[in-house]
Design a protein around this nucleic acid. Structure first.
Length: 578
RNA sequence: GAUCUCGUAGCUCAGCUGGUAGAGCAUUACACUUUUAAUGUAAGGGUCCUGGGUUCGAAUCCCAGCGGGGUCACCA
């Protein structure tokens, strides 16, 4: 591994600490009795005479015998004030002059003890009387500085913004970009809010298999894996719907699961291969009832997260206050296109698509055409939360046929910020009808539809024992989190979004040189000289290497290394075969 | 998958028609006892993503690859 100048200096500082008897990674706990946020919100109403606080050094301003630094803990930052004669009261000023000023860096984690005061410039600070190194940071952190403009808004300078780096090294992103943390905290609050809502209603949180012998409950391509001792194919679940319904058959009145699901499909700012849904099934209810629940629950989520039902998302303010607008799909299409398609047959629908410039191909049936028109002409118009109800039968093999509208099912989606955030239906509990629908899916599969559902015999058997009328719901947690945190990309609400692996230089010159018997202390010098392999080394004149090495180790300020002799270098080169 | 675009110091970014690689912050040294994007003086730091090609000469132009981002397609 090739270290940058700054990394080398930090490692040297670490060694110095050790030499001074200071363990840069002490084992014992450090007692913390206050957070930066508590001090900021309570001081000076409350006095803080004896604080003990730990955090990461984020800025340093050294001014001779006094210094300022900012420590960042989980709740924010606070300025700390170091004065030489407080840190090192005796004649020996090492602790201040050497340890604090020279050996500590931005990024190091320290604990401080002292008292809170206000500086002449009005900054609430901790006057440090003692400090302790808790963890030495060996890599330089991206330095983000902030100022305030006339309006008091925080302006960031040199912000750590490269999306690739931010997602690959989320830990760094979280350290230097505090707003990132906020989005994730809100995501967890969102889940907690839903969980408490559902638990208070008396529903049971359950766990169902992630590894499934048959994948079902949605139309998507799965990830496939293999179980060795059973010697069988297993799939990572694309949904948990069929298992939760089995539990309803088993007699639970309401079950829900926050589930990680996996879909082997394209990625975009709305799609990650693994994502989170909450699915809920409640017996003896229908989709109208479920709409009321969704409104109530999401309104509560907004209130819990923001204290108001209004949430700013991009350019829009979205208001989750109940009741939400409700459209049937036909009404929505009529509303946005002026065309009533409710009585149209397939031919007329195809003609309508042409008229509206909606792309349609010959394989699309009636249901698909309707869905296509909706997707093209309506969905992106829906910013405020809106329920769209009564979908074409063909698109919904697990939903119950509509009680009064032939060709439709009792299904709704909630659309918000132009995207689906939930999907729900009166669940199909007629085992004969369900079998027929699965068989139609199998037909689609045979015709090449990779996302057609498989027939799950055990699920059908459970329905044959009798499932009560049930309302089911799925909410995309990632999508909803994006809305609730005003995040434009799903990667902003998933800590570690899927990415291609980092390119790592497969050749490891260190190991290769070691294997050739080159003295370890000379290897970094060779690498620094741009020699990356033994093959490369062989091409260079021994006398050149002989001359270059002393120059480079002086440059790197390494402790005295015994220079290789010309014979030694020639010996290395002889080891290269060919 | 298609297409556009980006890849230069630890971070943010300049680098014109091809001519010895630049700035700010960060780092190092010195000064400074209430600073706050601290300041002043000085210094060090680069595989210009990788590999080919054109050229006397490539960070710059061309081709291929790798990685990222945007848009579209796919994903009910």
């Amino acid at each position: 591994m090739q270290l940058s100048e700054q990394e080398i200096i930090r490692r040297q500082s670490m060694d110095e600490l050790n030499k001074l008897g200071i363990n840069p990674y002490p084992a014992e706990l450090f007692e913390v009795n206050v957070t930066s946020q508590e001090i900021h919100s309570n001081y000076p109403q409350r006095e803080y005479k004896d604080v003990s606080l730990a955090g990461r050094i984020m800025t340093r301003r050294i001014m001779g015998n006094a210094s300022f630094a900012e420590l960042q803990d989980e709740t924010g930052r606070i300025q700390v004030y170091f004065r030489r004669d407080d840190i090192s009261p005796s004649e020996d000023k090492t602790l201040y002059n050497i340890v604090f000023k020279k050996l500590l860096d931005i990024g190091d984690i320290i604990g401080v003890k002292g008292f809170v005061f206000t500086t002449q410039t009005g900054e609430v600070s901790i006057h440090v009387t003692e400090f302790k190194v808790l963890s030495k940071s060996l890599r330089p952190l991206p330095i983000v500085k902030e100022t305030k403009d006339e309006q008091g808004n925080v302006v960031l300078h040199d912000a750590f913004t490269d999306p690739e780096q931010r997602y690959r090294m989320r830990y760094v992103d979280l350290i230097v970009n505090p707003q990132v943390r906020d989005a994730f905290v809100k995501r967890t609050q969102l889940v907690n809010s839903m969980r408490s809502y559902l638990t208070n209603k008396g529903y049971l949180e359950v766990e169902t298999p992630i590894l499934q012998p048959l994948y079902g409950g949605a139309a998507a391509k799965p990830f496939k894996t293999h179980h060795n001792s059973l010697d069988m194919t297993l799939y990572l679940r694309i949904a948990n719907e069929l298992y939760l319904k089995r539990l309803i058959v088993g007699g639970f009145n309401g079950v829900y699961e926050f589930s990680k699901d996996f879909r082997n499909e394209g990625m975009s700012r709305f799609h990650n291969p693994e994502f989170t849904q909450v699915e809920l099934y409640v017996a003896y209810k229908d989709y109208y009832w479920m709409m009321d629940l969704v409104e109530e629950m999401i309104e509560k989520v907004a209130l819990d997260l923001h204290g108001t039902t209004e949430v700013k998302v991009g350019e829009n303010v979205i208001n989750f206050k109940r009741p939400w607008k409700r459209f049937t799909m036909y009404e929505a299409i009529q509303h946005f296109t002026g065309i009533d398609i409710s009585e149209m047959d397939e031919v007329a629908l195809r003609e309508t698509c042409k008229q509206l410039h909606v792309p349609a191909d010959a394989t699309m049936g009636k249901g698909k055409l309707i869905d296509q028109i909706f997707g093209e002409k309506c969905e992106h118009e829906l910013v405020q939360p809106t329920f769209i109800t009564d979908y074409p039968l063909e698109m919904s093999p697990l939903a119950k046929k509509h009680r009064s509208k032939p060709g439709l099912v009792e299904r709704f989606e909630a659309i918000c910020n132009r995207k689906e955030i939930c999907n729900s239906f009166s669940e199909l509990n007629d085992p004969i009808d369900q079998r027929k629908r699965f068989e139609e899916q199998l037909e689609l599969g045979k015709r090449g539809d990779e996302e057609a559902m498989t027939l799950d015999e055990d699920f059908l058997r459970s329905l044959e024992y009798g499932m009560p009328p049930t309302a089911g719901l799925g909410i995309g947690i990632d999508r909803l989190s994006m809305v609730m945190t005003n995040s434009p990309s799903i990667q902003d609400v998933i800590f570690f979004p899927q990415m291609k692996p980092e390119k790592n230089n497969e050749a490891d010159p260190q190991k290769e040189f070691e294997a050739a018997g080159i003295r370890v202390e000379l290897i970094p010098i060779l690498i620094k000289l741009g020699i990356q392999s033994m093959a490369q080394l062989k091409e260079i004149k021994p006398s050149k290497i002989f001359n270059d090495i002393p120059g480079m180790w002086k440059k790197l300020k390494l402790d005295s290394v015994q220079n290789p002799t010309l014979q030694e270098i020639e010996g290395w080169q002889r080891k290269v075969v060919g």
